[in-house]
Every structure is written in C-alpha cells, then in structure tokens.
Amino acid sequence: MTSGAPAAPRAAWADVAAIVEFCVQSLAVADAELRKLVRDPTELLTRAVQPALWLIIFGEVFTRVKAIPTGNLSYLEFMAPGVLAQSVLFSAIFFGIAVIWERDLGIVHKMLVSPAYRGALVMGKALSAGLRGLSQAVIIYVLALVMGIRLQYSPLSLVGVVAVVMLGSALFATFSLIVACLVKTRERFMGIGQVLTMPLFFASNAIYPLAIMPRWLQVVARVNPLTYVVDALRGLMVQGGHSVLGTWTDLGLQAAVFIVLLTIAAKLYPGLVR
C-alpha cells in the first residue's frame, strides 16, 4: 500500500483542473450562443414590447387609481422591478424550445458525444440565458429613464441588479431545460410553457406586495422563485426601495435553487437523445 500523503495534493490538483475544464467548456457554449444572439437581435427587440405595455398602460393607470399600497414609492416605481423580473421570466421560460430544436437537428447529440461535463453544457446555456436577461434589463432602464421613473444608478446597485438578473434568468432557463428534457416535443413544451408563466407571474410580488395577498397566496408566493428575484430587484433598483425579505436571503435562495436545478438538468440532458 502506498501512503495517502502524495495522493492528496494530486487529487486537489485534479479538482482544480476539473473546475478549470468545467469553466472553459461552459464559456465555450455561452460564447457560441452569444454570437448567435448578437447576429440576430430581432428576438430581443420584440421582447421589449411587452414590458413597455405593462409600464406605460398598466403602470400609468394603477399609479392614478392608487389602489395598491406601495409605501413611499409611486406605483410605477414599485412595479418597475416587477416588470424586469417578468421579462426575465418570460424570456427564460421558453428557453427549452431552442434546446428541443437543437435535439431535432442533432446538435445535442454532437455536444453529448464530446467529453465535456454534462453540467458544463447546461451551465453554458444558463450563462447565455443570463446575458439575454441583461439585455432585458437595459430595455427596462431605458424605458424607466424615458418615463421618469427614479432608478438607482450607483455602481453597487447596478452590480447587484446584474447579479440578480443573471441568476434569475439562469434559474428559469435551467428549469425550462428540465421541462424540455421531460416532454421532448415542441408541441407539448409550448402547452406547458403557457400554463406555467401566468401562475408564476401572478403568484409573486411583481405587481402587488406580499402583504396584501390572501394567506394561501402568500404561501405560494414564498415558494415561487420569482418572488425573490422581484424582492431583490426592488431593494437594488429603485431609489428609496427596499427588500422585504433581505437581499442576501434573496440571492442565497436563488443560488441554492439554481444549483439544485443545474444538477437535475445535467442528469436529464443526456436523456434528450435516447
């Protein structure tokens, strides 16, 4: 028997090498996705329509009726982070459809035959979804500027918003990928996607505060990851806004949920080609 002492540093090195490899492969996938996105940004622009409608029509009307208690914030200021979270959700939740498309083409087969970590392949996709989400944030900030909604522009708050938007997008995109792996066809996926988006949106604090919800809805909202995305954004984005649940709690919970989903997705992804 050889002693364990020399083996330990070698194992540690192997771990470091594995982490580096994981990152290189994730970035390679994200880089390819980003190139496609930059080349054809029509999708991003069409996605600007919906948040604009929510802010300009829904937001302006509800600011006038003052039906929803929003504390020191105007209703528009209150809902701007909610609309950003909604954009993040809506652009990420249909992410799986692209994965099913890639499976029908054979691109997924090619990826899975490579020695790349399955988790890295999923992580690369999640990362590209995060960058997509950031483009939504830019759109909301521009809209807010035009509409005179007072947002925070301090570097710290911007960094925080970037982190929350990327994490939220990655989380919902990975969730979408899991659904895609389970249903495998576009038709079924579209059906499920439609069914999921509205409940996720309305059972959250995006357009009204947790405090005015009936008890049962509060419970649902508290297990809905979107609530934590909105809550963190509300604390970071708006002047005078604050997080009800705590920014670190919000971030920590999102990260934990993302890691769980990533692990599940990495397990299910190879099943897509069987």
Binding site: V24, R35, I107, H109
Partner: peptide, 23 residues
Amino acid sequence: QMVSADGALTARENLTLSARLYR
C-alpha cells in the same frame, strides 16, 4: 444522421466550439 452543425454559426465558429469542448 441529422444535421449537427449549427447553421447560425460560421464553419470556423462551429469548429472553435468543438476545439474548446475537447480542450
């Protein structure tokens, strides 16, 4: 059997992706 090259990328980009996945 199906088409596994990514149509939205150039040939060089497709190859670069493979090169990085295979390290």
